[in-house]
Simulated scan of single mutants.
Amino acid sequence: MGSIVVQTFLTLDGVAQAPGATDEDGDGGFEHGGWQWGYDDEDTVRAWETRTSALLLGRRTYEIFANSWGVWDESAEGFQGELTRLYNRIPKYVASNTLGEVGWQNSYLLGPDVPAAVRRLREEAEGEIRVWGSTRLIRTLAEHDLVDEYRMMVYPLVLGTGKRLFGDGFPLSRLALVETRGLASGIVVSTYRRAEAS
Rank of each mutant, 00 (worst) to 15 (best):
A66V: 08
Y87C: 11
E82P: 05
S68A: 10
G81E: 02
E74S: 15
T84V: 06
R85F: 01
R85W: 00
G70A: 09
G81I: 03
D73G: 01
W69E: 01
Q80C: 11
A66C: 04
L56V: 11
G58N: 09
E77S: 04
L83M: 06
N67F: 09
V71R: 15
T61R: 06
G58F: 14
L56Q: 02
R89H: 09
F79A: 11
L56M: 11
G78H: 07
F79S: 07
T61K: 04
G81L: 04
L57Y: 05
T84H: 00
R89T: 05
L83T: 02
R89S: 02
L86R: 08
R85L: 02
S75G: 12
F65A: 04
E82D: 12
L57C: 09
I64Q: 10
F79Y: 13
Q80R: 09
N88F: 03
Y87F: 15
L86G: 00
I64M: 14
N88V: 00
W69N: 02
Q80S: 14
N88W: 06
A66D: 08
Q80G: 11
R85G: 00
A76V: 04
R59I: 13
I64Y: 12
D73R: 05
E63I: 13
E82H: 06
Q80V: 09
Q80P: 07
L56E: 06
R60G: 13
E82Q: 09
R60A: 15
I64E: 06
L57H: 05
W69R: 00
R89W: 05
R85N: 01
S75L: 07
E77Y: 05
F79M: 11
E74W: 14
F79C: 08
E74K: 07
W69I: 02
N67S: 14
N67E: 14
G58L: 10
Q80E: 12
E77H: 06
A76R: 08
N88H: 12
Q80Y: 06
R89F: 02
N67P: 11
N88G: 06
G70T: 10
E77F: 03
W69S: 03
R89G: 04
R59T: 12
S75W: 14
G70N: 09
R60S: 15
A76P: 05
G58V: 15
F65T: 03
A76M: 07
A76W: 05
T84L: 02
S75P: 08
Y62D: 15
T84N: 01
W72E: 13
A76Y: 08
G58H: 10
Y87D: 12
L56S: 00
A66I: 07
G58P: 06
L83I: 02
F65H: 03
R59S: 15
G81C: 10
V71L: 15
Y62S: 12
R59G: 14
G81F: 00
N88C: 01
L86I: 06
W72C: 12
S68T: 10
G81W: 03
L57A: 05
W72Y: 12
G78L: 02
S75V: 05
